[in-house]
Design a protein around this nucleic acid. Sequence first.
DNA 1: AATGAATGAGTATTCATTCAT
DNA 2: AATGAATGAATACTCATTCAT
Lengths: 216, 216, 216, 216
Amino acid sequence: MSGRSTEILEAARDLFSRNGYESTSVSDIAGAVGVADGAIYRHFPSKRAVLYEVIREFYEPVIVMARRNIAGIGDVRQRLRYLIWLQVRAFTEQPELCRLIIAEARPMEDYYESEIADLNRRYTSLLVEVVLDGQRHGTFRDDVEPTMVRDLVYGGIEHIAWGAVTGRSEIDPNVIADDLTRLICTGLDVSRTQERESGLVAQVARLEALIDRMES
Amino acid sequence: MSGRSTEILEAARDLFSRNGYESTSVSDIAGAVGVADGAIYRHFPSKRAVLYEVIREFYEPVIVMARRNIAGIGDVRQRLRYLIWLQVRAFTEQPELCRLIIAEARPMEDYYESEIADLNRRYTSLLVEVVLDGQRHGTFRDDVEPTMVRDLVYGGIEHIAWGAVTGRSEIDPNVIADDLTRLICTGLDVSRTQERESGLVAQVARLEALIDRMES
Amino acid sequence: MSGRSTEILEAARDLFSRNGYESTSVSDIAGAVGVADGAIYRHFPSKRAVLYEVIREFYEPVIVMARRNIAGIGDVRQRLRYLIWLQVRAFTEQPELCRLIIAEARPMEDYYESEIADLNRRYTSLLVEVVLDGQRHGTFRDDVEPTMVRDLVYGGIEHIAWGAVTGRSEIDPNVIADDLTRLICTGLDVSRTQERESGLVAQVARLEALIDRMES
Amino acid sequence: MSGRSTEILEAARDLFSRNGYESTSVSDIAGAVGVADGAIYRHFPSKRAVLYEVIREFYEPVIVMARRNIAGIGDVRQRLRYLIWLQVRAFTEQPELCRLIIAEARPMEDYYESEIADLNRRYTSLLVEVVLDGQRHGTFRDDVEPTMVRDLVYGGIEHIAWGAVTGRSEIDPNVIADDLTRLICTGLDVSRTQERESGLVAQVARLEALIDRMES
DNA sequence: AATGAATGAGTATTCATTCAT
DNA sequence: AATGAATGAATACTCATTCAT
């Protein structure tokens, strides 16, 4: 990667973030770098390739970091929470890039054949792995499709954080991560088992009292 | 609503579904209806207004039906499941319209000020109401933000169903609805309370056996 | 002229004055009157005919009044001044209509074949008549084309008053009329004839002095 | 100014002159030059910019020439006559461009903020300078606003020459210039001083006859 | 007199990409 | 690596006028 390519990517990232992909012309990028329009095509085959590379540069380190950090977290629920927190934080720290990916890159015709979709799959598969791990170790129920959990988490975060992306609300990644992790892990129900548990506890208490009396 | 407006909307819905909003020209719509281009503008102020009306016509009956059907379902979990099922079924029955809304209408600049966004808010607020209801009746924990549940469910379904929308996979609304409802309600954890329950059950069993023996 | 026609003309005059001819649609006029678009065409053959009638209604009373008032002014220079004043006052009192005529009606292709051009000719010919009168009575030099005076006066006033029409300056019709009349009548020169006169006066004075001496 | 820009301006000038600004499409211009439509926009930001540049190219040399030639004319009346003649000749030599400026460019909304209006102000201010000069040297009366003279001359010429522009009459710049200059300078009045002069001349004649007799 | 739906031609502008230099 | 001029397709929208009712 020559320095010129880096300059182009930096300019493109700034312009795409600020004005969006559609509203940014190749000339804008070239102008920001200080080269002629045609020069862009010495480094990238198309404007879309520039977009994809901008996104890749944003994505890849996150994947690497996530993979490394997950490996250092023992508890499977904490690993899940970390991935949730990481994603929420991406939305709060880089809202423009998240908007770019979701509202501009993903609706593109060839997105699902692109390297970006692949990156995304690699990234979200980390969460699938965590769920599978939890299932293998008996922490998570194994009658749940890990991919459904993945879609639920990433789709959910997208909606939860979209207000922050569009500047209509603010969120705290830690609070969201805590709440969402708990919701995903323990569910919405006031646990039936808790209810039964209460019943059992009462029964046990009664039995123990009976035994006490019998023993006395 | 004159018959001509209806014709225009039907033609537009078909063309938008088949080819997308951007790839459909006003002339295409007029041609499909069999009128001159300008005639469109006697019924709609702009091409975008046609899109919004197409979406509104799709959305509004769903809201009405959902509201009515929910009222007839007693169990709060069943109400939740119904809303989930309804949304998943929308993605399987009308994938093109869902794609149109998510990939073309929603990324538009003025979407969040549009009537469509409002319709969506009204629609998804049904689920918020269900959750609140569940919390009031003690079925659902009340330490969970109902709006977070709403975002989780609708964002999750979007991701879960997207493969079906883009024709890369198939899904069964009933299966998805069951799985997702259970996941949302009871969570991912092999219930800590279940563990404790198991302990309790065993303890109770032991105690009862003891009493049995003592009584015998 | 039915009341409806009058209503249409009044609405058109207001709209043309406020927004200009091009920016006013037939629908605007019909809407202002409270009738259907097509109704306009029961009263006028075209939008342009409405414009021309609006202008005619503005022009004709001015001509009648000018003709009558001129007849009552004895002095030919005062008649000239009156026509100048009348025109300048039109620009200050009805700047929008003047703008409409000059900037929108006159550049039209068929203007010079229109009734409006004819009205204008009739109107400006009053000034030609005044000049001819002045020439016949020896008040004005007869080696000047009256039509040139006409063009000079009306073209000049147009430029003098244009700043007021476009709201970039203000003018007083009386001041302009006085100054312009004097300029037209007596010209710019510190009179050459005054110089010659001075010479003659001196010569006469010398001759008279001589005669005085001779006679004495 | 590249050769391509020049070609575009030449084609545009011809087409604008022949067919008018409104009736000339950008495609017409591009076709006349032999380039693609988009090429125009590499040289000019808009169709209007092409018009303004066409007018500027016509105007600017005239200003330069006028300024230079005026400097070489000693007599202030001759300088005035020259400016009048120059303007009348513009109308006879370049009637289409004059029509373009007066009937198409000047009625435009943003004309008075354009560079063209500025050029016009610079051009007509030459005449203001001449009048001021004449006033300073005592040739012209100083109780006349030079700007009024400017408006009178240029507005007047516009009307005088308009018949020639629209092909309804022919004019001779020299004749017009002579007549107009004299009218502007000496005015319409059969000079009161002339009258007095006539009286003086008669008196002188009488005196001289008397002297003759006395001497004889 | 009135309606009002329908007509349908007409156009400036953008911009990713190429290629001769 | 770089230039930068050239390409050329592609499209929403307006509105004066008509005419069947």
